[in-house]
Design a protein around this nucleic acid. Structure first.
Lengths: 212, 212
DNA sequence: TCCATGGCTGGACTCTATGTCCAATCTGGA
DNA sequence: TCCAGATTGGACATAGAGTCCAGCCATGGA
């Protein structure tokens, strides 16, 4: 079934829709000729390829009907409410090739909507954390916690220690801040040259790692 | 453009997706050959048929690449965050026929999620805010919220508007970040020179404040 | 004690990014 | 149409980032 050329043609679309809508949407390809399911992505019911489509109501052969139906509501056996859309997909000659159905489980949305409407929807807007106001304090803090972790004062840190601290600072994008280098060098009690040396070593994970 | 046979082939799918996702999703068909937009449903930006696709990164001609990308995050000029999925759709011979992109505006979902997460998990404690990982996105966001506040697109902002945005960005210490100036200038659709001009005006509270 | 080694240092140097300035151009309004 | 003010690209000056190196410790082994 998977090697039906029609499935190959339409699969990427189905896969894309399924990926976009995450776990809450089921995508089904029907064969209008045999009225059976050809393929399913994200199945929500037990239906699978080969099962009957039960699409009787939409007549793919009526040329006057529109190609896209819905969204209309369906009800699953367990009570979940679905929004469904169907589309008749045609081959280059205009013949109905397959019928695509997308079924979206509305319950999570309805739950969310219920909660939202319970408030008057004043739409919470965070006041924006924005940027760290005192990034140099932050540097001191990173160095400080490391010092406390290993119990050695800054002056006694080993080369490896400084590399570790630098890794954290670099990770935290500290060096994207202007004039950060001298501050960090100061905090680590190291010269600017050394700082750049360590940094280079840190950022070149190749060569020279015989130490590991 | 509408009578391109490829558009006829794929239009029902696009229309279905657009119908299913209501007003919050944009569906775009790209021509991988000319790298231009062929058709758009539910347009969210000003792009239309014939405009360049700006899809450079996904190479439709690389046969080893997967056919479906995403979902990945995109940022609109006005700051809205999108979930995007792209799929390469092929003709019966396996040649890339068109590229389908579905862009879902996440802001309503995020607002809902924010409210929902406010229940449960009292006071999420982030383990060290550290630095903003993507500060340029932050810039986009500040510009974006302003644009939405005053309802004018970036291109139509007045001089005073730009001053106001700059004040916010300056307040947020954006210019303490390396290489921020060109990014901000770009976001405001203004040249570097102008940027510095506005900035100077902003930071000189003396003289010329007859306006207060 | 002496020497060898490896990391650290200051400083010179290059190059990129920042910020200033200006003449030419654009734009909106009288 | 013309004018005043805003905007622009580009030239320029300078500061900061990053590299390099010769010399200087400190450590540890002979």
């Amino acid at each position: 079934m998977d090697d039906d050329p029609r499935v190959r043609t339409w699969a990427p679309v189905c896969q894309a829709v399924a990926a976009l809508l995450g776990p809450y949407a089921e995508v089904v390809l029907h064969d209008p000729g045999t009225d059976r399911i050809m393929a399913v992505w994200n199945p929500m019911s037990a239906r699978g390829p080969g099962d009957p489509s039960l699409l009787g109501e939409l007549d793919a052969l009526d040329p006057s009907a529109p190609d896209v139906f819905g969204p209309y509501e369906k009800l699953l056996a367990d009570g979940r409410r679905l929004s469904s859309v169907s589309a008749i997909l045609r081959d280059p000659d205009g013949r109905a090739s397959v019928v695509l159905c997308v079924n979206l489980d509305r319950t999570p949305l309805e739950q969310a909507a219920a909660v939202l409407s319970a408030f008057g929807a004043p739409t919470v807007s965070r006041p924006e954390p924005l940027f760290e106001h005192d990034w140099s304090e932050r540097v001191q803090h990173v160095v400080g916690s490391y010092v406390r972790e290993c119990g050695r004062p800054v002056e006694r840190l080993t080369r490896a220690d400084r590399l570790a601290v630098l890794a954290r600072l670099d990770e935290a994008k500290v060096f994207a801040v202007r004039r950060a280098t001298p501050v960090v060098a100061g905090a680590l009690r190291v010269s600017r040259s050394t700082l750049y040396g360590l940094l280079a070593e840190l950022r070149a994970p190749n060569a020279k790692d015989h130490a590991r």
